[in-house]
Design a protein around this nucleic acid. Structure first.
Length: 221
DNA sequence: GGCCAGGACACCA
DNA sequence: TGGTGTCATGGC
């Protein structure tokens, strides 16, 4: 029943916005970098940081791992929190180098639940970042929950806004088939809707649910 | 000039 | 276990 509801919401979003073809990133490693850099940051800023890494020919596991922390921080400065994220990027590259000989293919060859557990043990990789890496870089069926997911589905009355990350994630994974393509598109569509209409402090519940809301033009800027 | 953006972590009660 | 402060740039 609830699964059908989630499927219907997905179908509605897909009809409204069309496939989003996520994640923006030319390689799995670029997706991993983007997942870390986008933490609490506008994607446009992340693109600038990634462009800097490409220009410096440092968008690779060893390229990032062998930079001095302050040099890496300077390159990713546009993404914000650059000192914190430089540490996190190097923690991730060290993890892949030490545990998997620098090979993402080897990392993703494990059972993905094991990979998730290991990713969460890397300092600076929380649940959303781990799930983004698994889903969009590793093509594993791990549903990604983000701020928009929480806002939208709590305002729809389907979940409690106070749900933990894992409980919210379980809500989707217990009700949808473990389908990588479905999870990929579902999260992308949620973000698309969220960016357009889901403001942190809506004037009414419809502000995050439909572009037809009378407040939409105002709240969406 | 303030708000917001595709979080995570340390610290404290 | 839950709440709060910190990390920071750039667009609107």
């Amino acid at each position: 029943m609830a699964g059908k509801q989630l499927q219907k919401i997905f179908d509605t979003l897909l009809a409204q916005y069309a496939p989003r073809h996520w994640w923006p990133g030319e390689t799995p490693f670029e997706v991993c970098v983007g997942a870390i850099l986008t933490q609490n940051t506008n994607w446009g800023n992340v693109e600038k940081a990634i462009a800097n890494l490409k220009t410096a020919d440092r968008l690779s596991i060893t390229g990032i791992a062998t930079l001095m922390p302050d040099e890496l921080a300077a390159l990713i400065r546009p993404a914000g929190y650059f000192n914190v994220k430089a540490t996190r990027l190097q923690a991730f590259t060290a993890f892949v180098l030490q545990g998997y000989h620098g090979s993402l293919d080897q990392l993703f060859a494990e059972p993905w639940q094991t990979t998730r557990h290991e990713l969460l043990a890397v300092k600076g990789i929380g649940p959303e970042t781990a799930d983004s890496i698994l889903l969009y870089a590793g093509q594993k069926p791990s549903f990604v929950v983000d701020t928009y997911t929480r806002r939208i589905f709590s305002r729809l009355g389907l979940v409690d806004e106070q749900f933990s990350y894992d409980r919210l994630r379980d809500y989707f994974m217990d009700r949808l088939p473990l389908d990588t393509a479905l999870f990929n598109e579902y999260h992308a569509l949620i973000v698309e809707l969220g960016k357009l209409v889901c403001r942190p402090k809506p004037q009414c519940a419809a502000c995050c649910l439909s572009t037809n809301c009378q407040h939409y033009a105002h709240s969406a800027g």
